[in-house]
Amino acid sequence: MSGILVFAEQREGKLNRVTYEAVLAGQRLSAQMGLSLSVALLGFGVDTIAQELATKKANTIYLVNNEHLQSYTPDGFSLAMRQVIQELQPKYVLLAHTYLVRDFAPKLAASMGKSLIADCVSYKLEEGNLTLVRQIFQGKINADVSIHDSAPILISFQAGAFRGDDVESGSAEVKALSVKLSAEEIRLQPQELFREAKQSVDLTQSKIIVSVGRGIKSQENIAIVEKLATALEADIGASRPICDSGWLPMDRQIGSSGQTVAPKLYLAVGISGAIQHVVGMKNASAIVAINKDANAPIFDIADLGIVGDLFEIVPALVEEIEKAKAEG
């Protein structure tokens, strides 16, 4: 066999939906390249997830059931996945670029002397030649990356690169595949998953959010956007660096490691629009961005944009809003 193998991600017995994005990428590539499509599911007692995956169009779902895979560890998952790859000899291995994949896939690749082509946003197939598109410089620039390697070629795709809802239904055969793992090989001891103490601010219900990023330059300047938030009767949100620096509390953070919000209006001030921020706010009904860099990725998802200096625009905006409110 020399087809396409997709890694299915589950944690604590639940399928990570982003898996379907990788499956869809696999379905498209398998159709275009005439390769078979398999999915590998690693875990312990996760048969129902295998059945769920089997309702999608693929040739085979390989269920790798092993007690050492019950809790995720990079050691267990990379050792098991390596055996699966050796057994199936796929030409391509596709993964979704999640936190879990970041944790073990580079190790898996390096253990086979392979170079993982990580965090791709799309691919191009020209005359049978596969090129991957990656974002570099935090999404400001795209790079076309060519592959100079033999099988297996490992590729991870950014969350959102494919629409998981478009995954084709079908029926796949579920096959068990066994791997050999021993307790000594697993050097890490995982403990329970947990969340920090309950967040005191719930931005998920906010109607309007004014969100501030590093363009604000200093903690003192936060007051400038706070005035805007007050004028708009909005809640205040922030990008990660603002919370990392302690300029606003952690529970204001929006993005992959913060809150996911969907307000009527999201006003991004001095935020570049890195993918980890965008995943947390892209479902807002309207997005307005104020940024001095016309090439900032935030303008790719904004409905309305003002290119310019926030220190001029935000005070002017507050003034105009007050004026409009006074006029009723």
Binding site: T131, N142, V145, S146, H148, F299, L304, G308, A316
Partner: peptide, 24 residues
Amino acid sequence: KQKIERVSFPVKSKKTEIIDGSAK
């Protein structure tokens, strides 16, 4: 084993309406 062949600015997928003029 992987090489950057070409770099480019991303093509915008969404039409952002840019509001121009002075700050005011």
